[in-house]
Amino acid sequence: MPSGPTHPPGESVQDHVAPGSSPTARRPGLPPAVLEKVRERDPAALAAFFDRYFDQVYATAHRLLGERAAAEDVTQEVFYKVHRAAHQLDPARDPAPWLAAITYNACRDLWRTAEHRLAKKSGSIEDDPALAGRLTSGVNDPERDLLADERRRLVQDAVNRLPEPLRTSVVLFEYGGMNHQEIAELIGVNHAAARKRYSRALALLATMLKETLG
């Protein structure tokens, strides 16, 4: 397994342990024996590995990229790399953070492409006046706010419109099973900066959701 993020000594558990309340994060990992078989590319073990982690990889990619087609491309890329690097897998550790890191790196490669930057220019909140109005204007519809589905949709839209670095912090922390230190090592910043990105992301979300959700 590639050198994965680790918990540095002397830091609080609160900072390092992701909330882990998302369904993906709470799901138990595969037994070490199965992971050992994955290292050997045993077909049954590979199938179990795919079934266990596909949703996590796809969801992380989708949340980072905000679109289905790109998420599918990244998901295939991630599992291709996993297959190639299966012999490096550490059966003693949960592969979830490792997969999240691979997924993030694949997304980052995509973000760096000219095509993605060009497409992203049309994805600003400024280009969606209706959404911007719903999220930031003074219009408040209590009846609509009571509908959970509508609330989730608004929250999802707000997350999708976070700047990429902030969205990365939220997605990897809330859904990727990574703590701030692991995220810091992955994205190449120090722990305090990673933690602050997460806080800034939540503050921006709160601003966007304030008028809508109260």
């Binding site: 369904p23 949703d55 289905r68 998420a71 989730r152 929250v155 859904y175 979300l205």
Partner: peptide
Amino acid sequence: IGALVRDLPPPAAD
């Protein structure tokens, strides 16, 4: 706010 984010259902793959 974190709870609101975590409450989002995971996007389902085709």
